[in-house]
Simulated assay, not measured.
Amino acid sequence: MAADTEAWLDDTRPIQRVRVYQDAAIDDSAWPASIPAIAQFLSVAGADGWEFGPGVTFLVGENGSGKSTLLEGIAEAAGLPAEGGTNNGGPSTRATESPLGQWLRIDRSPRAPRWGFFLRAETMHGYYSYLDDLGGGGGLHTMSHGESFNALLDDKLDHPRSVTGLACLDEPEAALSFSSTLRWLASLERMRSRGTQVICATHSPVLAALPGATILELGEWGIRPSAWEDLDLVRLHRGFLEAPGRFLRHLLD
């Protein structure tokens, strides 16, 4: 067996590369391919494939930059339910996802774990109902928004016996207090240490501060690697907290 083949087999990342199907019917002028970040991703994935390293990758950027669309497409291509859930299933109500997931395929070794979980913040209510129907909801509907997300973290993602695999997280901080966000930050580090591969779309400068994480910033320029301290996200939060009056004068006058 050639050395490169052996290395590929031994690489247990759930996603090594994302590629574009050769016969994918992509209209470059229409959504979502018209979003600059998606267009760049498709260009790279259609050539050499877009590689995702081990550990945690954050997707950050303004509303409409393509973070959630890209994450959703990758999750769907990886075999996860578009409305959230595990590779064992999830709810399916009204199809609102883009066709991106149908254009993409995942490169991974046959030795890579197939387990995965997609947390899609706006559709978790449906996932809780899906679990209730299976008899395993665990009272998630009776919890607050943040409590239910923390319960998912404990039961699905950061349980001591959690199955190593892929975690696609779409803005988990939407439900979280500051202290709960710190809790998730610590959990992401534990997940990474166990070998879980995480791709997380976020607006949180707290989560994005995870040491050693890869940060991809999406915007009108497309996609670019970035350091935490160089993110617009960090600069704007820091500026507001240091001098809120400076922002409020422009916003409220």
Rank of each mutant, 00 (worst) to 15 (best):
G49C: 07
F41C: 04
G49S: 00
F41Q: 09
I74H: 04
L59Q: 08
G116Y: 02
A77M: 04
D132T: 02
L42P: 03
A47T: 10
W115Y: 15
L131S: 01
I35Q: 12
M124D: 05
T57E: 12
E51P: 08
A112P: 01
R120Q: 14
R114D: 07
A121C: 10
A82F: 12
G85H: 09
D107A: 08
T69H: 04
M124Y: 11
A78N: 02
L100G: 09
G53F: 03
A33L: 06
P81A: 12
F58V: 02
A47K: 15
G53N: 14
R114F: 11
P81H: 06
F118P: 08
L71Q: 07
N63T: 14
V44L: 06
L119H: 14
L71S: 03
N63Y: 08
D107K: 01
W115P: 06
T93Y: 14
E97M: 14
I106N: 11
G61W: 06
S65C: 06
W50C: 09
H125T: 13
A47D: 14
S34D: 02
A121H: 14
A33F: 05
G101Q: 01
G84Q: 12
G89E: 00
V44M: 07
M124W: 10
L100E: 05
N63R: 11
R105I: 09
R114K: 12
G53I: 11
A33K: 07
S34L: 05
A47L: 13
S65Y: 09
L131N: 01
E62K: 13
A95E: 08
N87C: 12
G116N: 08
L80C: 09
T69P: 13
L119E: 01
G53T: 10
G64Y: 00
A82C: 07
